[in-house]
Design a protein around this nucleic acid. Structure first.
Lengths: 222, 222
DNA sequence: GCAAAAGTGTTCCAGATACACCCATGT
DNA sequence: ACATGGGTGTATCTGGAACACTTTTGC
């Protein structure tokens, strides 16, 4: 099967930088490549855009196929188009980033990949293509958005404690936050409500469980 | 001449939303299309990406070819990929936005276009494709960046008065600013210096002319 | 002398920051 | 009883917002 056009066309992929939090560390989803180029190396999940498929649809489909997760937050990041970024031919990639709550990180292996795994964002293996650059851009965007949007909520399960939410902020920003000030400013957003239930674990006072009032999209705040 | 590939490729263009300021109004550069589809309609300058050409190179080249200007500020905006955005076939566009100082708005007609003209951003003609969406996204990005970067300097000629700079902010944000507060905050950035010369025009006190200390890129501030 | 834009400081307020102790629980 | 993380209020600081008059010029 061949595809012929009157003038040059480009190969176009979407790649997705998928983040979650595990054990107080930011993790990235990577796939071990089963084909050349970079066979055996780790790469972002992604694949070629089909002619009748929207860009975001493509990113979502590839990610669902390769990992089995769905319903995640997805946002276009940047389009990487350096001429030599793929050794085979010119390949453009429209990069996205996705966030997955920490209670939905179960993965399935798939036909496209030898393996799928979460890696701590600070200890990554060698990556295929320019995927390290893509991840760097995604981390910067994520960290920036913490300050002026409700994006952090996308990491949270259905119910959670304020300390857990604070850990999300601290992990991504890489700095400790003051507990009282954090609670004050988060509650001032009026986006959380108490469930009336408590999380009890370990030898200490149980923590109030909160939920997000309207789990719509990410809102810009301040 | 035909181009054949083993699997589907996409047509990829860059389109550029070019802004400048004229007579205290934000203006957009448009090109009247000489070919179908949308022959005779106005559109953003842009064109197909060549296989051996970087994305930003393409945006810059198309804009220089069609307008004769060069050395402008250029930033990737967003990639638009709706399946039906071009009636001929699936065409992806990597949209950029560009800013041109108000003293360099001279245009040349070119082979690609019947006409090139500046339009007030608030009174646009019918536009081809989804170019109205692209312009909307570009305006939003521009307005947002005023608050946390030095992007407004990209509109200024070599020397200018603080009142002229203030007019740039007021025009893009669509609101009046306090003169004393504006000067205080702009000068606090330490990015401007006086030239020692004055602009004298009209029956009033001459205004000090300033210049930008280091005309590098756009910096993130605060 | 008058019209028109340039230039200049201080007060006020709100939101961010710094900071320390008691509470509820399991062992 | 003690170790562990949960939960709470106030004083201070700082950056943004509000605000009015004098200066220099051309006509």
């Amino acid at each position: 099967m061949a595809y012929t056009y009157e003038y040059p066309h480009l190969a176009v992929t979407t790649d997705v930088a998928v983040f979650t939090l595990q054990k107080g560390e930011l993790h990235v989803l990577l796939i071990r490549r089963g084909n050349d180029p970079f066979r055996g190396a780790w790469a972002l999940p992604g694949g070629f855009v089909r002619p009748e498929e929207g860009l975001e649809d493509c990113a979502r489909r590839e990610l669902e196929e390769e990992t089995g997760v769905s319903g995640f937050y997805l946002e276009q990041l940047y389009t990487f188009g350096a001429v030599q970024r793929d050794p085979r031919e010119r390949v453009l990639t429209v990069a996205y980033f996705a966030l997955i709550p920490s209670d939905r990180v179960v993965l399935k292996a798939s036909a496209d990949a030898d393996a799928v795994a979460w890696f701590p964002a600070n200890r990554l293996p060698e990556l295929a293509f320019d995927h390290r650059d893509i991840l760097k851009a995604a981390r910067e965007r994520l960290a920036a958005k913490l300050d002026y949007s409700t994006i952090a909520f996308q990491f949270m399960p259905a119910v959670f404690t304020l300390s857990e939410l604070q850990t999300v902020y601290e992990t991504i920003k890489g700095e400790k936050l003051d507990k009282r000030n954090f609670r004050k400013s988060i509650l001032a957003l009026k986006r959380l409500e108490t469930t009336g239930k408590y999380k009890r674990e370990g030898a200490h006072r149980p923590a109030m469980l909160y939920r997000i009032k309207a789990r719509k999209g990410v809102e810009i705040i301040k």
